[in-house]
Structures are given as C-alpha cells and as structure tokens.
C-alpha cells in the first residue's frame, strides 16, 4: 500500500515539476519576445524635401556640401542644371569629399573616385553615387531625401 502511495506521489511530483518548469519556460518566452521586438528600432519617418538654400548661394560651377536629414549631400550647379548626389560612398559608406583640383569626388577611406555626374570611375565602389531629386521652388533649392 505504501509503495503504491509512493508511486502515485512520484508521478504527481514529476507532473508538478514538469508543469512548473513548462509554464515557467513559456512565461519566460512570453516575456522575452516583447523585449527582443523592443530592441529593434522603429522604422524612420517619411521625410519631405528639405530646403538647402537660395539658388544664389549655389553659383554656377560650384559644388557645395549640405546636410539633408542628417546625411551629407553634394549639390552641384552646372551651366544648365542643379544636381544633388548623396555623399555616401557606395563601397563602405564613408563620406566622399569633393576635390576642386581634380574636379571629382574622392573617397578618403579606400580610394574610390567618382565623376561629378556620380559615375564610379576608380577604386572599389560598385555603383555610382545615389542621385537625389532637386527641385527649384520660388528661388529656393529643395533636395528630397531619396532619389
């Protein structure tokens, strides 16, 4: 009789241990999931075009570096148009600099070179610089955050 009691006791004990362990694990997972999701930053907000200055501030033949949505952008004014290129190198995201001497963009990190129309000329960059849309509105130059 006592042995049967023992058997029932052991079975109950095992079941209870399993129930405690199982529900504790499930509760822990339920708690971990929101934390993991929380750690992932929410998507950035959609942005409109940013005013970067008056058209007179961009003389013909000049290259000026402005900041659009916290990112560097080269604005180039030629005789007949204004163009904007993201200053982020397509190789490993360094900021490329304008070289007035060579009339080209040069990446100081790994030697990438781009033409003034964004084409990747030399070095490791796999793609041309990203071109951004430029609008001239009431004498102001607007650069949109994406091409």
């Amino acid at each position: 009789m006592s042995s049967r009691d023992d058997k029932g006791g052991v079975a109950r004990r095992n079941f209870l241990n399993l129930a405690v362990g199982g529900s504790a694990a499930a509760f822990a997972v339920a708690g971990t999931y929101p934390v993991v999701r929380y750690l992932e930053p929410p998507p950035g907000r959609a942005r409109s075009a940013s005013r970067v200055g008056k058209i007179e501030e961009f003389p013909v033949g000049s290259v000026r570096t402005v900041v659009v949505d916290d990112r560097p952008v080269h604005v180039i004014r030629t005789a007949d148009e204004v163009r904007a290129f993201s200053a982020i190198c397509t190789h490993l995201q360094c900021v490329v600099a304008y070289s007035a001497e060579h009339k080209q963009f040069e990446c100081p990190c790994h030697g990438g070179v781009y033409a003034l129309d964004g084409r990747n000329l030399e070095g490791p960059p796999p793609r041309p610089l990203e071109e951004l849309t430029v609008t001239i509105d009431e004498g102001y130059v607007l650069v949109s955050a994406s091409g």
Binding site: P34, V35, R37, Y38, E40, P41, P42
Partner: peptide, 9 residues
C-alpha cells in the same frame, strides 16, 4: 507610441 512594445516597457 512608436517603439514596438515600448508602451509595455
């Protein structure tokens, strides 16, 4: 308002 489960945390 924006971060996933941020209101809970």
């Amino acid at each position: 308002g924006e971060v996933a489960y941020g209101d809970l945390v």
